[in-house]
Simulated assay, not measured.
Amino acid sequence: MTPEEIVGFKVARLREAAGLSQAQLGASMAKPWSRQAVSAAEKGRRAFTLADLTAVAAALNVSTASLLPDEAIDSRRALEAELAVAERALGEALIQCADLRARVTFLRAQLDHYEEEDSDG
């Protein structure tokens, strides 16, 4: 996960815990953000300035530090996300391997059939 994604993840969890919609959070900031801007921030698609972090933290009534990446926790989340991607890729590769194995078996059977015809005739 990128730092922006980590901050966005934290903003989303804290906003949800506060019972706020994205529009409500955006409107409650000193310099209001649109719902779309909050959504982009929560998805990690917006770079945060210090002023942004301070404004979001104030709107959520939390410290600015609580929005910053926590190396131990966030490294674990990043590893978990990477593991999930790798496991998905492995699953897809195993399915492709099984499909390929079935194709090889089919082709061998077809060749065996031709070889039997050649030996009979």
Rank of each mutant, 00 (worst) to 15 (best):
D118P: 00
A18K: 15
P32V: 05
E71R: 09
V7T: 14
P3A: 10
S66F: 06
V11W: 01
D118E: 15
Q24S: 08
A59H: 07
I6Y: 01
Y114H: 15
K31N: 04
L14Q: 12
Q96R: 13
M29T: 11
L83Q: 13
D99R: 12
D120S: 14
R108S: 02
L50G: 07
R108Q: 12
A12I: 01
L79V: 05
A86D: 11
D52R: 00
V62I: 15
L67G: 00
G121Q: 11
T64C: 13
T64I: 03
E4Q: 15
R45A: 10
N61H: 12
P69A: 08
Q24T: 15
G8A: 03
E16K: 15
D112W: 01
D74T: 08
E117S: 04
V62P: 02
L68P: 02
L94H: 05
V62Q: 14
E71C: 00
V62W: 01
P3T: 11
A98L: 07
I95V: 12
Q110R: 11
A59R: 04
S21Q: 00
A102G: 12
L53V: 12
R13S: 15
E42A: 07
A59C: 07
L68H: 09
A93W: 00
I95N: 05
E92N: 08
V56C: 06
L111I: 09
L53Q: 02
E92S: 12
K10P: 01
V104N: 06
K31S: 07
E82N: 08
T105H: 03
E82T: 14
Q24F: 02
L14G: 03
K10T: 15
E5G: 07
A30S: 13
L14P: 00
R46M: 03
E4L: 01
R35A: 12
D74G: 03
D52G: 05
E5A: 15
I73G: 01
D74I: 04
Y114R: 10
L14S: 01
I6T: 14
L90E: 08
A41C: 09
K10Q: 07
E16V: 13
G44P: 10
L111Q: 08
M29Y: 07
V85L: 07
E82K: 05
A86W: 00
R103W: 11
S66L: 15
A86R: 09
A55S: 13
L94M: 12
R108F: 05
A81S: 07
Q22H: 04
S28I: 01
S119W: 00
R35D: 14
S39W: 09
D99M: 06
